[in-house]
């Protein structure tokens, strides 16, 4: 069974970059969300066992998505991929239940390492 993965980012380039960086040998189905609302919908419809989440998004940002997921006790594995790379943001999202934090621009080897680390590969 392929794992349902959702990429939530308002930038088309960013979604493309993440898709490109995903390991080819990883058996997944990819869904895309352009904002936090769409990301939550994906979780609710079972399209996001793994969620790559941007922080800065219109209509519900990444922090709000994390908060909502925490309240709903969702088991989604959230990997934040953000341009805000300051330590404050990293600390905040991990306190809000994000599994990992990756910096933009996303590098393929870092992503692979992270996926291995959390046991997805």
């Amino acid at each position: 069974m392929p794992i349902p993965v959702t990429i939530a980012d308002d930038s088309a380039l960013s979604r493309k970059t993440i898709k490109r960086a995903l390991p080819e040998d990883w058996d997944i189905t990819i869904h895309e969300a352009k904002n936090g609302v769409e990301a939550l919908e994906a979780v609710h419809t079972g399209l996001a066992e793994v969620l790559f989440l941007d922080l800065q998004m219109p209509q519900m940002d990444g922090f709000e998505v994390l908060k909502e997921l925490q309240q709903e006790h969702q088991k989604t594995i959230v990997i934040v991929i953000s341009a805000d790379i300051q330590p404050a943001a990293q600390a905040l999202v991990s306190s809000m239940g994000a599994f990992r934090f990756l910096q933009k621009p996303l590098k393929a080897d870092q992503l692979r390492e992270t996926l291995l680390d959390v046991g997805l590969l």
């Binding site: 930038s11 088309a12 800065q56 805000d84």
Partner: peptide, 16 residues
Amino acid sequence: DALQEIMNISMGQAAD
């Protein structure tokens, strides 16, 4: 969109 995203990342690095 692409330029904005690239700048967003760059500025994030500057802020950091």
